[in-house]
Design a protein around this nucleic acid. Structure first.
Length: 423
DNA sequence: TCTGGGGTCCTAGGACCC
DNA sequence: TCTGGGGTCCTAGGACCC
């Protein structure tokens, strides 16, 4: 059976979520900002039409946005994650195999569906259902490989005449589209690669598809070779409907205000480690390695720069917040230097073991704290209950370094106190 | 003054071993 | 004068994704 993939992708996802709870903003330009209100990461159709670019630092265009009456939101991930879960659960109802690829897109396996309905009809059905039940508009791209389905989705978004659904299973239609698409819009071709490809005379997706896979492998990489094959309708990337276990967990953040004193940095590192440990327990894993990094503002060359990054091995893999925090603070002590204005720090956990699998060495101090598991699970339960937070003293209380979120919307769907009110 | 965060995979090069 | 070669493992860094 020939594989058929559909890529379902939400349009302007973050701004659509915000608009969903602000009917007064229908038809208005909206943007959503990254953490710390740093730069633009989502734009409504109206904002795109005004020429507002992705990734632009907010401070550079804030006056313009105000003057033009653009609605501005800080990112509200609790809201987006909840809306995402609603969309995904619809897809899971409608299709037997779903790979949730990111917060706003999913691949579906439609192999063998041709006999039930035309693929495009099925795409339209998905689109209407999601629209009706969540108010989120999606586009659907259908093709024999993931890379082509991405491209089909792209076309569905770009050309309104498609009605948001493009079936790219026919080779003739594939060719016609590939010819129109610049090579840098192909999935897996980023800034660096497209520059190189361009120099080599490969300018459109079709140019790339016409290259010999073996040559591409020699001159570029195995990854790009796979892309070439996928563009020719040969499926090399399969649907991953069981989520693979994570290899690493990162918690990092830029500070709302620069940090210059050890005490504040200690609080931040402590908080990031606590959060990373929570994620680790959610994954049901234990970690044997922890890394810490800090950095000054690399965008300002006039400032003295310092960006230490170092790691440590734990005696045995652990998911105990207290052990991880202790290790992180040790790393902080050995890399901290006074006299810098730190902009960002982060904690990374790696080298995971399933609990109970690790074989300690003969002379390892395998001592674990009594009742650690019970304590951690109570901690997680309280902090997830929405009733309050329990935290380590080291996380601090004032937190001037906390990130900036001046335009955040309420947690409409995940906190009872923030339910939207209809008057 | 002011530029996100969280992931994955691949490759090159060094250390080490026999 | 002349000092191997192949394999594995680990790490850092690059490139990409959303």
């Amino acid at each position: 059976m020939n594989p058929v993939f559909a890529l379902v992708d939400c349009n302007n996802f973050y701004t659509s979520c915000e608009r969903r709870f602000r009917p007064d903003l229908a038809g208005a330009p909206i943007v959503v900002l990254s953490n710390n209100d740093g730069c633009i990461i989502s734009r409504s159709a109206e904002a795109k039409a005004m020429g507002i670019k992705m990734g632009v630092p907010f401070y550079q265009i804030e006056p313009y946005l105000t003057q033009q009456g653009v609605a501005v939101f800080s990112s509200n991930y609790a809201l987006y994650a909840d809306m995402s879960a609603r969309v995904m659960s619809i897809l899971e109802q409608e299709s037997p195999r779903v790979e949730i690829y990111s917060i706003d897109e999913a691949f579906l396996d439609l192999s063998g569906m041709e006999s039930v309905a035309t693929l495009a009809d099925f795409g339209r059905h998905i689109r209407t259902t999601v629209q009706q039940w969540t108010g989120i508009t999606v586009c659907v791209g259908i093709a024999p490989s993931k890379t082509l389905s991405k491209l089909a989705n792209h076309a569905a978004k770009r050309y309104p005449a498609t009605g948001g659904v493009v079936d790219l299973t026919s080779p003739e239609r594939q060719r016609r589209l590939l010819q129109l698409v610049p090579v840098d819009e192909v999935w897996g071709v980023g800034r660096r690669l497209s520059k190189r490809l361009y120099k080599d005379g490969i300018k459109t997706a079709l140019d790339l598809a016409c290259c010999h896979p073996k040559t591409i492998r020699q001159q570029y990489s195995v990854v790009l070779e796979r892309t070439v094959r996928e563009l020719n309708g040969e499926s090399c990337l399969s649907l991953e409907d069981v989520t693979p276990t994570k290899q690493q967990i990162i918690c990092s953040r830029s500070f709302g205000e620069r940090i210059t004193c050890f005490q504040s940095m200690r609080e931040a590192v402590c908080e990031y480690t606590v959060r990373a440990a929570e994620k680790l327990r959610e994954e049901g894993q234990t970690a044997k390695r922890i890394n810490l990094f800090m950095r000054t503002n690399r965008h300002n060359p006039a400032e003295p720069q310092y960006m230490p990054s170092l790691g440590a091995e734990l005696p045995v893999p652990t998911d105990d917040t207290r052990d991880l925090v202790a290790a992180a603070i040790r790393l902080l002590r050995s890399s901290w230097k006074d006299g810098y204005r730190y902009m960002k720090a982060g904690v990374m956990l790696t080298d995971f073991y399933e609990p109970g699998v690790y074989q300690p060495g003969l002379f390892d101090d395998a001592h674990t704290r009594p009742n650690a598991k019970a304590l951690m699970s109570v901690l997680d339960k309280i902090n997830h209950s929405g009733k309050g937070q329990v935290f380590l003293a080291g996380q601090g209380v004032q937190k001037e370094w906390r990130m900036k979120r001046l335009h955040v919307s309420p947690a409409y769907t995940t906190n009872w106190r923030s339910l939207p009110v209809v008057k």
